[in-house]
Write a protein that binds this DNA or RNA. Structure first.
Lengths: 191, 191, 191, 191
DNA sequence: AATGAATGAGCATTCATTCAT
DNA sequence: GATGAATGAATGCTCATTCAT
């Protein structure tokens, strides 16, 4: 029962992610989300009393999916270089498989509709990233770059690659592109 | 007279850039744009018969400002390395000075409200960029990277820096940050 | 429940008939129709998504009321003369009792807002009229007059009478006026 | 100069007649009338300070044209029968030649936008009609029909014919239709 | 819990009218 | 006189939200 409930909420949120990404927050009526999710207008407000609740839930969901994908297969014993390469590939492959969530995070990461609380909660999932890069700096494997810049740099560059693939510019040769681009970013960052 | 007219249109567009960036397209009522621009609601529609016309004009304006800023001080005789360094700095400094236009381009570059025509028209201004990087590849100064990826890569990385500064993370030390980051990107890209 | 729903739609349509007749289609704001019908503006659009839907529904309703009124008491066995006299009286009495619907049909019968579909659907109800007059011609009781002209002639003349009474020129003596006018039209048409 | 002025006003009024007829009063923006008349928006308001002035002028013009057309060729010495036949033909031919003005009068004859004053002024032109029919009744050539009904009856029947022709149902055979229809109406009315 | 009718504030857009040039 | 930019009230329509069933 609780599962059904959660599943119903999940369907709504998934639908919202897709539609917000396609048409924007104000461009997507709640009635349309309800219709696409196969429920009634009233039911949507039963689960999410305000439209903003929806976008916050959507954001939290997408971010936690992203965090889980990033962590996959990271070997604690591996070198910094190995970890970074793994992250780089994880991120690109996740973005390609989940373009709606990827774009959603990009678009709404700075949105005023995402509450501070949601923002902070989701941040917790990403602490491990900073640790990895800090460790790299300590071990002199990565250049000393002002505190959080490393992470942002890594992610923005990564996004450039995902965009290309999502927009269909290099649909084949994905693995090759992952490797080539990793060399690009890594040669710049590493010592 | 013609100047007054153009100036009035310009005021409206500038206001729209700011508000669209802050609140989004659907989140910004035309009535609010008019009020902020100091004109009546009817006048706005006198100049821009549809709300979409406004966003297209805004996009065209921002892009042409950007193009002009990029070109400034590029020395034809300079090396690729010199040109790239100049572009890098131009871009960051322009973004910092014009955060509204910078964010506007980021947000609405992929927007369905920007018409194909506007998109194409604005693209013409940026041809010189590809030429610079192509020349770099021909002269073996830059790695051979799939066609347009170089430009996107360069820009996305640049954006990461602008974001930091706009969001106030490294407000001082801007020139230092420009240099440091250029090394990061360029060591990766150059041979 | 279904009755309530239909009743609500009916109230709206009746109100629209009256107001469109008084002030015209463009002269009647939907907000005013809603207020007069005792509902909110939004509710009106819940039932009639476009203003044009309202006028089409109104037209269909008025026409079907008219058709029903016309048929009342027509005796299949009666002579042409008897049938025509009955129609003549039915029409005038209906027009007097339902001046809003009568005027509405007159004003909007040729309106561009009435869709072809509505026009065709309502026409089906009036087939029996042509049959009556055609039968009259076959039986040599009515002059041979170019096809549909008979019906139009009969109706336009009838309207002249209704107008007089509605506008208060001969409020008493209605039955007398019906008889007198029938002689006028019938002596011209019949052989 | 005065002629130019009158001609300019006349152009505006003629344009208004056409557009009001096609799209209705509220359906025709003054700006559109101005454009079609080849003048600026402001100029229209110079000549007709309010939109209602335009419709009143248009009504007065159309009615005076109609009155003039009706009178043409009426022989004072002719019999009632001859005069009626002449009127009947004059009216139909005028309606066919000036469908815009004809429809305009039909549509706006009962409009609330036509002021009492305009209505009364135009009425003066039509006094001769009543005289003709009254004379007919006195001479026992026409049935005694309640006062003004005769005129209305005559006109409404006439309109039925004009409509048919304007709408293209009997485009040829116009003279024949005039004769046939006159017999229809006259046999009913005359003694 | 689920539905969908009802609400009314809000928005893009239109248009009669004014007025500076 | 002529122009057309400027105005702002008004209008068709949308949509988040409520609530009776």
């Amino acid at each position: 029962m609780s599962d059904d409930l959660n599943e119903k909420k999940a369907v709504i949120v998934r639908t919202a992610v897709r539609l917000f990404t396609e048409k924007g927050f104000h461009g997507t009526p709640t009635s349309f989300i309800a219709k696409e999710a196969g429920i009634s207008n009233g039911t949507l407000f039963h689960y999410f009393p305000m439209k903003e609740d929806l976008i916050n839930s959507a954001y939290a969901m997408a971010k936690s999916h992203l965090a889980a994908a990033l962590k996959a297969g990271i070997d604690r014993e591996s070198t910094i270089d190995g970890k970074a390469r793994c992250l780089w590939g994880n991120l690109i492959r996740w973005g390609i498989k989940n373009p709606d969530e990827f774009r959603f995070i990009e678009q709404f990461g700075c949105s005023p509709y995402i509450s501070k609380i949601t923002e902070e909660e989701t941040m917790n999932d990403f602490g491990f990233l900073e640790e990895i890069f800090m460790e790299g700096m300590r071990k002199d494997a990565i250049k000393k770059i002002p505190d959080t810049l490393v992470v942002e740099w890594f992610f923005e560059a990564n996004s450039a690659i995902i965009h290309r693939i999502i927009e269909g510019k290099n649909p084949e040769k994905i693995d090759e592109l992952i490797d080539v681009s990793f060399e690009l970013i890594w040669r710049g960052m590493s010592k």
